[in-house]
């Protein structure tokens, strides 16, 4: 038996919004620890991972691990039927269920909606992601700042370079109409309302596809802050964490390299 209840549908709606433009379908792996997912996008440029820890749920029961193959567009359609303040309960049989049940209940518990989502058999390759990568540079910024930087720059072109030196990050773009750049310095004061922090072990300069950096802005409502981790020649790791360590959405984006 798998049963998980979220107090408000907002949490899962936001998480799905953050991943559904990158992934068409994925296995939602349920274990005693929580609900998680990982999948590559179709062109295999980006790996998206998501975790909702059991503590994110008001009720969480998973007697034995199960994997629910879900079409992201279908689950999003069903969740559109939940008001943001409605609770969401997901119920599935852990013995080869062919559908999962979704129950939405309003705050006064006098309106209850039931939906059944057909599950799919998805044959996906699971990749192992190192837990404690030692990155050359880590930058944390308000997620609203992230959105502004990459929605602006990706309009100019699709080749975006991130260069991080001591206390400064430079984001630049090359496009057909011209180019542009933006410098962001670490904020001085620790009690600044919207801090930017930059930790550099070694300066790093890497190039990434702007279209993806812009797509990741769909995760901005999840978190007030975002962390970007870079190591030369390796994928960029971008993390949006849910409040109270309830979970996260992480993207790993392959770099563009000079030939």
């Amino acid at each position: 038996m798998f049963e998980a209840k979220l107090t408000e549908s907002t949490t899962i709606k936001r998480v799905l919004d953050a991943i559904k433009d990158l992934i068409q379908q994925a296995n939602f792996d349920c274990s005693a620890d929580g609900l998680s997912l990982q999948a590559m996008d179709t062109p295999h440029v980006c790996l998206t991972t998501m975790t909702l820890r059991s503590q994110a749920f008001e009720v969480y029961r998973c007697d034995r691990p199960l994997s629910m193959g879900i079409n992201l567009s279908s689950i999003s359609k069903i969740l559109k039927c939940a008001a943001s303040k409605d609770s969401v309960k997901i119920v599935a049989d852990d013995e080869g269920a062919d559908c999962a049940e979704f129950i939405f209940e309003n705050e006064s518990a006098d309106r209850i909606a039931h939906f059944e989502l057909k599950l799919m058999d998805i044959d996906s390759e699971h990749l192992s992601i190192p837990e404690d990568s030692d990155y050359q540079a880590i930058i944390s910024m308000p997620s609203a700042e992230y959105r502004r930087i990459f929605s602006d720059l990706s309009i100019i072109g699709d080749t975006i370079t991130i260069e991080i030196n001591k206390n400064t990050a430079c984001f630049s773009v090359e496009g057909d109409i011209g180019n542009g750049s933006l410098n962001l310095a670490q904020t001085d004061s620790a009690d600044e309302k919207n801090p930017v922090t930059i930790n550099v072990k070694e300066p790093v300069k890497m190039t990434f596809p702007g279209k993806y950096l812009n797509t990741f802005t769909k995760a901005v409502p999840i978190s007030e802050f975002v962390t970007l981790c870079l190591t030369d020649g390796n994928p960029l790791a971008i993390e949006f964490s849910l409040p109270d360590e309830a979970g996260f959405v992480r993207y790993f984006l392959a770099p563009k390299i000079d030939q």
């Binding site: 295999h44 980006c46 990749l127 192992s128 596809p209 994928p235 984006l253 392959a254 030939q259």
Partner: peptide, 14 residues
């Protein structure tokens, strides 16, 4: 010319 790498290159199958 810049070449877009594939993400599958960086992670081993679990």
């Amino acid at each position: 010319k810049r070449h877009q790498m594939l993400i599958s290159r960086f992670f081993a199958p679990a």
